[in-house]
Structures are given as structure tokens and as C-alpha cells.
Design a protein around this nucleic acid. Structure first.
Lengths: 203, 203
DNA sequence: GTCTATATCGTGATAGAC
DNA sequence: GTCTATCACGATATAGAC
């Protein structure tokens, strides 16, 4: 019951987000967005000048949320092992709720993804992140092995993002229905942290 | 110097493969394929009846190669640990040479990917694969912990496929140029097997 | 701000000569 | 088999009334 009567701009953005996420830039049609927003086609060009600008607006927002999510998790002031479990847990939930986000972000990535990254200073953020510091400090203390933080982060993200993007394949191979796939992702919340910690504590 | 003068059908297929891989189904234009194949636009419709049939032809071929690659690696009659190192090594090389294949395969996946999987009996192949047998047998012998093979395979694939798909992001965050990224993937050939083995031998 | 009507162009596909 | 010319359609975008 929040706001039955949204303004046109909001309705357009929400519809555009749905359509772009599902169909991609080329696959998305302005007509479909207009229809789903329950708005005239001309209205979209009134609020946003073009399809491309509409897309960029959606993309920047989605990308920002995504990166913000990762940054926040990485910088939480909890001990390393607890944090890894928490990152995986929260991030998995996010992906289950937003399964189309990864492919959406990666789709335009090779076109102009670099700009967004620079604008948000993603590199600096990660460079000075609590997570990276912890990996170095714990290694110096001899609690874990010394590793490239980028390898670790990429492993965590890949282990969670990939099955989401390849849900159909994973489900088919494992003979899983929709509930079965969710179970698979749930048990991944345990598998992935255990794997990461096993590696860090080995060698 | 193999075949300077290819027949039109082959030239079209090769051009279509390049364009579809780079642009996706919607983004690819028949005119561009024709130009890159150095062939008239009408020729494409002569050999393949429509854009969709051309795409399906390319997709089936690419998907088949990809799955074949995985199947072959998984079924090699080498001991488990050696095999894991080998799978990662070969598969990484394949991805470096074909970085666009994963997103291409996953792009149409939610549309009709299921059919291809059934046609190739991917599920049966994996079910009776040497790799799965080995995971079970080694666990029974007490050499490794008991795990869901699907979790392990998904981890390996995710750890390798994700950085390839997200090359721009990874490179940016790590401050890597193209050579640096290749190095990153090379060192991943060691990181990933060590991580998997550390997990299997732990617990 | 919101609508209808329309301009303009790019697309996949085909007809038909050679 | 290969070409040129063209159709038919759907796309984005805009003009202009209200």
C-alpha cells in the first residue's frame, strides 16, 4: 500500500529495469517498456531522451547497487572467518533474489563498464578494504597462507555467480526443480566458505 | 595455406560465429555477417533459411564443442588429484582462447538451452562419469571427504568461467593490462586445484 | 505532462534476372 | 549459385494538439 499512484518517471524506470534485465539492451523494446509501465510510448522519450539514456540510467543504478553490496560486505569489521561466512550468506541471498543482475551487468561490461568502475573508484575501495588488510595480517600472523586477495574474491564471486547464471544447466544436470535449485544454493552457503577456509588454512 | 578459397557456406558460418559471439542474437545483424563473410546478403538466406536457423546452427555447434570438451576432461582415466589439475589447466587454456563462448552459451540458455542438454544426454554422461565415480570411491576409502560432485564441478567451472566473463572488472580492480590478466589466469591454474584439493582433504 | 499521428530509418526476408 | 532491387515490417524518435 506504499504508493498506489506512482509518478510516470518511476513507473517507467521500474518497467525498464524489468525489461532490460530480462531481454538485454538490444532485445528490449521501447514499446514493451511503455506497455509494462502503463504509459504512452512518447512519455518515455519525454522523461529520458533516448533508449540509450534510459538504459544508462538503469545500468548505473543497478551496477551501483551491486558494487555497493559487495563493498559493504567486504568492509564489515568482523573477524576474517566470520566475515567470509557472512559474505557468502548475504551475497547468495542477494543473487537468489536478483538472478538476472550478473548477466545484465556483464552484458554491457565490454562496452562501457570501465567508466562506471572508475567513477566509483572501485579499485581504491578494494585496495584499502578491511578484507584485504585482514588477509595480509592473518597471513603475517601465520594463521593462514599468504594469497592474492583478488584470487580469493574472484573465487567467492565465481562460485556463487556462475551457478546463478547457469541455473538451467545446473538444474538440468542435477535433476533439480526450482525448489531443488534453491536447496543447492543454500547448501552452497556452507560449501563455499568451507572450501575457502580449507584453502587458506592449508599449505 | 589450408583453403584459400572456401565455399560460401563455410565462410558464412565462420563469420556468423564471430558476429553472434561478439554481439549476441539480437545485436548481430545479417548485413554485418554478410559483409564479414564477403558474401551477398541473399546468400545467407539461400543456405540458411533464416537468422534463427543460422543462429541455431552456430549455437548447437559451439555448445557441442564446449560440452564435449568438459566431458572428455571429466572422463579421462587418470587419478583424481592429477585429473583435477589437468581439468583446470586444459579448461583455462580453452577459455583464454575462447573468452566469448561462456556468455554466448549462457545468453540463449534460458530460451532453449534445455533442449540441447537433453539431446546430448549431458545428465547421463555426468551421472556415469569417471570423475563422479572417483569422488565417491575416494571418499569411501577415506582419502577425501564425501561431497556432492555437482558442488565440486560448479566450483571449478565458476572459478574459471567467471573471471573470463568479468575480465574487464577483474583487470580494472587488479590494475592489470592484457598480459597481466593472462598471468592472473595462469596463476589460477595453481590456485583453483589447490583450493579444491584443500577442501576435499579437509573436514 | 500527456496524448495521437507520423516521420524516418534499419531490419530480415524474398523476387526474379542472370 | 550468385547477384540487384525491393518489399514489409517494426523500431526509435518526434511533431504538434490538448
Amino acid at each position: 500500500m506504499a504508493q498506489e499512484k506512482q509518478d510516470a518517471e518511476t513507473k517507467i524506470k521500474e518497467a525498464a529495469r524489468r525489461v532490460f534485465l530480462a531481454q538485454g539492451y538490444e532485445g528490449a523494446k521501447m514499446r514493451q517498456i511503455a506497455e509494462e509501465a502503463d504509459v504512452n510510448l512518447a512519455m518515455i522519450n519525454y522523461y529520458f531522451r533516448s533508449k540509450e539514456q534510459l538504459f544508462n540510467s538503469i545500468y548505473a543504478e543497478t551496477f551501483g547497487q551491486f558494487i555497493g553490496q559487495v563493498m559493504q560486505l567486504i568492509n564489515e569489521p568482523t573477524p576474517l572467518e566470520v566475515k567470509i561466512w557472512k559474505i557468502v550468506d548475504r551475497y547468495t541471498d542477494f543473487l537468489i533474489d536478483n538472478p538476472l543482475v550478473p548477466s545484465f551487468i556483464l552484458s554491457k561490461q565490454r562496452v562501457n563498464g570501465g567508466e562506471f568502475l572508475k567513477d566509483m573508484d572501485v579499485r581504491g575501495q578494494i585496495e584499502k578494504s578491511v578484507f584485504k588488510k585482514q588477509l595480509v595480517e592473518e597471513a603475517e600472523k601465520g594463521n593462514i597462507r599468504l594469497t592474492d586477495p583478488l584470487q580469493v574474491i574472484t573465487a567467492i564471486l565465481g562460485c556463487l555467480v556462475f551457478p546463478i547464471m547457469a541455473q538451467q544447466v545446473v538444474s538440468y544436470v542435477g535433476g533439480l526443480d526450482e525448489a531443488g535449485f534453491r536447496e543447492f544454493m543454500e547448501s552452497r552457503k556452507q560449501f563455499v566458505p568451507e572450501m575457502i577456509m580449507a584453502y587458506l588454512k592449508s599449505g
